[in-house]
């Protein structure tokens, strides 16, 4: 067990180093940082002095080591655009994106898993066919179109829900949350649905496929032959076995949801990291882009680590093999 976690952690360190290297290369080699920091009126001598001060003349390896070291200490550099510390900018944006991503994930799980189970147990039912068709439409339409359609119906036509921004938020320490006000929740619903639809479809289809396979397995047939009550059969025996492979995909997808919330955030003007990233691209704000890359990679690594641990929790075979 300890060995397993240690191995994963070491792998994670290498992934993070690789991403940090990419971010660093972006910063160092896409254009000259000095020309981007300074205006036309800065003299060449001043530019050279700045270059020396910032250590840009040092050997490459040394610069990378310093870049990584600074990051580890929480020093992410300064934005070209706003002249603020990047760490601060990201920190104010992270809560918005995380809350959006988590709510989208929960929607996809709480709708996707029951729908998957239902469609697996009644493969020929009318409702099943309807759900399958609807979700097919769901994946086929691009996210931004879904977002715009939701805004049109619920925001503009019916006027039930706000169409942009986070609504009312409350500061909890350094964390700006929309979970504590009705307004915040109202503003959260549409973007979360938009972001969750794709993951919902995927979860549902995966659960359905796995569940149908598990229902054919010997242990389910044996449990049926012993007269285990149907409820337990479906939800204890079958569902647990279904979730083992499904969890991996959900985990990978959650990383994706956080990373690719860019589209949703821009449709709903959601002040999260995705929107920040888009703004940074427009202004070639390379330090912010680099840090965004590192932060997103960190989420991916973290989520996958959690998934690996969940695996061990669910499946006793992995646990025991390690002990013996």
């Amino acid at each position: 067990m300890v060995y397993f976690i240690a191995k994963r952690l070491i792998q994670s360190v290498f992934v993070m180093l690789a991403v940090a290297f990419l971010a660093f290369s972006l910063f160092r080699f896409v254009g000259d940082p000095i020309t981007q920091m300074t205006g036309v009126e800065t003299s060449v001598a001043d530019q050279e002095r700045l270059r020396e001060d910032l250590g840009l003349n040092d050997p490459f390896v040394y610069q990378f080591a310093r870049f990584t070291g600074d990051m580890l200490q929480g020093d992410f550099g300064f934005s070209y655009r706003t002249r603020q510390p990047v760490a601060e900018m990201i920190a104010t944006r992270i809560p918005a994106t995380l809350e959006l991503g988590i709510v989208a994930l929960l929607i996809s799980l709480f709708v996707g898993i029951p729908a998957g189970v239902y469609t697996a147990l009644r493969p020929r039912g009318v409702a099943t066919q309807a759900i399958l068709m609807l979700t097919l439409v769901g994946v086929s339409i691009p996210t931004f179109v879904i977002g715009i359609m939701l805004i049109f119906f619920f925001g503009v036509q019916l006027g039930w829900l706000p169409t942009f921004g986070r609504g009312g938020t409350v500061h909890l320490g350094g964390w700006e949350t929309s979970f504590l006000t009705v307004d915040g929740w109202r503003a959260l619903i549409l973007p979360a649905i938009t972001l969750g639809v794709y993951q919902l479809t995927l979860t549902m289809r995966l659960v359905r496929a796995e569940m149908m396979e598990v229902m054919q397995s010997d242990y389910i047939r044996f449990a049926t032959a012993r007269g285990v009550p149907m409820g337990r059969l479906y939800f204890k025996h079958a569902l647990a076995n279904t979730m083992v492979p499904v969890i991996t995909i959900i985990g990978l997808q959650f990383g994706g949801v956080i990373a690719f919330s860019i589209v949703t955030e821009s449709v709903f003007q959601w002040p999260g990291m995705g929107l920040l990233f888009l703004e940074s691209i427009r202004f070639v704000d390379i330090p912010v882009m680099g840090v965004y890359l590192v932060v997103i990679a960190f989420f991916f690594v973290l989520v996958n680590l959690i998934v690996d641990l969940l695996y061990v929790v669910i499946d006793p075979r992995l646990r025991i093999r390690d002990v013996s």
Partner: peptide, 24 residues
């Protein structure tokens, strides 16, 4: 029929490797 299964008729399958739920 389901109430009768296990109560009056039961079954043993071929492969003991696959006929028990691995997670319980």
């Amino acid at each position: 029929a389901h109430a009768l299964r296990g109560k009056r008729i039961s079954m043993i399958f071929q492969d003991p490797q696959t006929s028990l739920n691995p997670l319980m």
